[in-house]
Design a protein around this nucleic acid. Structure first.
Length: 189
DNA sequence: GATAAGATCATCT
DNA sequence: GATGATCTTATCA
């Protein structure tokens, strides 16, 4: 009886929140392994869940595409903090971008969540994603490992390594050689 | 189909 | 005062 509809309904036993230790690893490893995991958003109206389809890694003080490469400022301070925290900022005056901080404190790095699939619908692009999930700067710098507001889950679905393609990151041409790094990960259909 | 331009503001210089 | 880790709409081919 325990095995009744075990997979189809994805019971709680298969929903594992990703803990702080998950993010305290190499940013590239975290980024790649986040593909196929789930982003859960809980607000006053209810709960929304998106399957992560595309992410980008921003790695360390020397990565010129990473905001932290320009130094530690009030905005980028959270990147230098402990892993598992949210880093959300406004870009181009109208869109928000959601990141999760990775690696140990004092090493500034994060993974940008670029696209998710919600109920089979692709939500493509960090700005759209934040709009769809009701994410803005009020959620900046929250702990994403507490099952409150915003967190990640592993729901037992497996993604073959060959199903994850690597690409250059978007919109970072100014970053010179760093712009060529294949630090964008996307799930092949 | 591809490319260009406009929207709009927190952040940093 | 300049600049984006973007998206939508318009214009062209």
């Amino acid at each position: 009886m325990l095995s009744d509809h075990l997979t189809f309904h994805s019971p709680n036993s298969m929903r594992q929140m990703l803990p702080k230790s998950y993010f305290n690893r190499s940013t590239l490893v975290v980024a790649r392994s986040l593909i196929g995991k789930y982003l859960v958003r809980q607000n006053g109206k209810g709960t929304m869940v998106g399957r992560i389809v595309e992410v980008e890694a921003y790695v360390g003080p020397h990565d010129e595409a990473c905001h932290a490469s320009k130094g530690r400022t009030p905005r980028t301070d959270v990147l230098f903090g402990p892993p598992g925290m949210s880093y959300i900022y406004l870009i181009y005056g109208m869109y928000h971008c959601l990141n999760v901080v990775t690696e140990e404190a004092e090493f500034p790095a994060a993974v940008l969540i670029r696209a998710v699939e919600i109920d089979g619908e692709l939500v493509d692009g960090p700005g759209r994603l934040c709009r769809a999930l009701d994410i803005d700067r009020t959620l900046n710098r929250i702990d994403m490992t507490t099952r409150q507001h915003l967190w990640f889950e592993d729901r037992g679905t497996k993604v073959a390594r060959g199903k994850v393609g690597t690409f250059p990151r978007i919109g970072v041409d100014y970053a010179g050689e760093w712009a060529k790094k294949l630090w964008r990960f996307r799930l092949a259909e």
